[in-house]
Simulated assay, not measured.
Amino acid sequence: MPSMRILSWNVNGLRAIYKKGFVDWLLKDRPDVLCLQEIKATEDQIPKELKGLPGYISFFSPGARKGRDGVALFTKIKTLSLEYSLGLPGFDDEQRAIVADYGDFLLFDVYFPNGKASKERLSYKMRFYDLFLDLMDRLVAEGRDIVICGDVNTAHKEIDLARPKPNEKISGFLPEERAWIDRLIEHGFLDTFRLFHPEGEKYSFWDMKTRARERNVGWRIDYFFVSLGMRDRVKSAFILDDVYGSDHCPVGIEIEL
């Protein structure tokens, strides 16, 4: 049975990662699909080489806020359709998602909001979470299988960050943020990494200012979730914490086609 290897990576700036050997890494790893978040580049700032990489079709959705947001997708496999919008009223202005229809499943490449800046941004994040879950529920009710990947900006359990206690009142590990992931799972979505590594203490993000990666003081805030109908098709889930270039590292899954 053929399989499909999908990676997701918050690159914290497409131009920055491009200068750090991104193309060499991608053409060596050769995932079937690569989803990127936080590309931080306008259309004219995207390196031309990335628009014509051998073997890949590329899609870019630059953020409306200069130097922030934005997502991208590189795929070897043609999509039936592709959208740059989640269709959430008032929440598409920051270009946070690409939705690719591969026929037997929908792939959501999403850069979820960060709530640390202010109470208003935390409120924005929680509203985004709620509307996104409503959308997932509707699509599952319509019979669609779904893969969600990206920077969710929340660590779910204490095992998902190196220092849970000092961060209990910090956005990214607040009770209401963690409760939303509980709800996502209660609604039938599976945290793929935990399917294969129930006790694994691996992280996908480290604060650059404190050189946290050198000490592995990290957070697991990048995920692949799949709807229940995809459960038996997920063959592996992993974190590529030996890949550098961003304050995040790639995460991935392999699914049966």
Rank of each mutant, 00 (worst) to 15 (best):
R5D: 05
I6L: 07
L7R: 07
L14P: 02
A16C: 09
K20L: 09
C35M: 08
K40H: 04
A41S: 11
T42K: 15
T42Y: 04
E49P: 08
P54Q: 06
P54H: 06
G63H: 03
R65V: 11
G70M: 07
V71A: 02
L73I: 06
F91T: 02
D93G: 05
D93Q: 08
E94W: 00
R96V: 03
I98S: 02
I98G: 00
A100W: 01
L106E: 01
F108W: 04
D109V: 02
V110K: 00
P113F: 03
N114K: 14
K116I: 10
K116W: 07
S123C: 04
L135G: 00
M136I: 10
I148F: 14
L161R: 07
A162K: 13
K169H: 14
I170C: 13
I170H: 12
F173R: 10
L174M: 12
E177S: 09
R183W: 09
I185L: 07
I185H: 09
L195G: 14
E199V: 12
G200I: 09
E201G: 12
W206C: 04
D207V: 14
D207P: 05
M208T: 13
E214A: 04
V217L: 11
F224K: 14
F225H: 14
S227R: 07
G229T: 00
M230W: 07
D232M: 05
F238L: 15
L240E: 15
H248S: 08
V251S: 13
